[in-house]
């Protein structure tokens, strides 16, 4: 597809270990490597950070606790006390996306969140899961979600399709937002990085821009993980409390 210097070459999936299970391609790729690396880094970060389990935490333990408290407060504020049961899942989502984004910022690594199939799979699982929770909790009453209270009955034929479309588009907006941010940011970095050498002495301008952009991308890596998580929480809140 793309040649070696294309800005899109960084997104190419490279098979590292070809695996095949009964005709299903389960090859271990650079994407899979980064996913496994994310799991290992996050687990090591949290487990080793808490190994001393000090009453007065050190720097590392403080950061581990901070990430926990940050998401715990987010869940409490958006979902309420019922969100406690879903906290481990939401915490996993946040840490997985955040470290996936951040590890993708390491030069020559790979950003698995820049692939729509990854973000969409996560969004779809969240969407289906949240809908199942809502159905289990509210049974048929769940469908009143598509008819906001206080709306005149005459508006129903117009409003209900809109509500259904907006509900069904949730996994798409959730996944595209993360994927597009990662794709755009990394492509832009690569494009401007390509100018540095070709412009010679004047390459210092795109070089400075790339330095600034790298900082911005790290902020975006955090921000998008946060947005992905908070939207998950909001969807969960809708499922638990409907309106």
């Amino acid at each position: 597809m793309a040649d070696k210097h294309s800005p899109l070459a960084q997104f190419e999936i490279k098979t590292l270990v070809p695996l095949d299970f009964g005709g299903i391609d389960a090859s271990f790729t650079n994407s899979a490597l980064m996913m496994v690396a994310t799991v290992v880094v996050v687990s090591a970060f949290l487990i080793l950070g808490m190994r001393r389990n000090a009453l007065v935490p050190g720097r590392w333990q403080s950061i581990a606790e901070l990430s926990y408290v940050f998401i715990a407060n987010l869940v409490k504020d958006t979902v309420g006390s019922e969100g406690r049961n879903y906290f481990p899942f939401i915490f996993t989502v946040f840490m997985f996306v955040l470290f996936g984004n951040l590890l993708g910022m390491v030069p020559y690594s790979f950003t698995f969140t820049s692939h729509i199939v990854v973000t969409f799979t996560m969004a779809a699982v969240i969407f289906v899961g949240v809908t199942l929770i809502a159905l289990a909790k509210h049974k048929m009453h769940f469908f009143s979600f598509f008819m906001p209270p206080g709306v005149p009955i005459l508006m129903a034929p117009l409003l209900i399709p809109i509500e259904i479309i907006s509900y069904l588009s949730r996994p798409i907006s959730l996944s595209v937002r993360l994927f597009a941010n990662m794709l755009a940011g990394h492509t832009l970095l690569k494009v401007f990085a390509g100018f540095i050498i070709s412009l010679g002495v004047f390459g210092v301008a795109p070089w400075l821009f790339v330095v600034a952009l790298t900082g911005l991308e790290i902020v975006i890596a955090f921000l998008q993980a946060f947005v992905f998580t908070i939207l998950t929480c909001l969807y969960l809140n809708d499922a638990l409390h409907l309106h």
């Binding site: 389960a26 090859s27 994407s31 949290l46 935490p57 581990a64 899942f89």
Partner: peptide, 30 residues
Amino acid sequence: VPQIIWLVISFTAMFLVMWKVCVPRIGGAL
């Protein structure tokens, strides 16, 4: 297909580690 498979594997593994080890440990400490 390989991306989805490895996403499911790694995410599930991470969820189990978070659920069974990290969250109780940090929550207990707090």
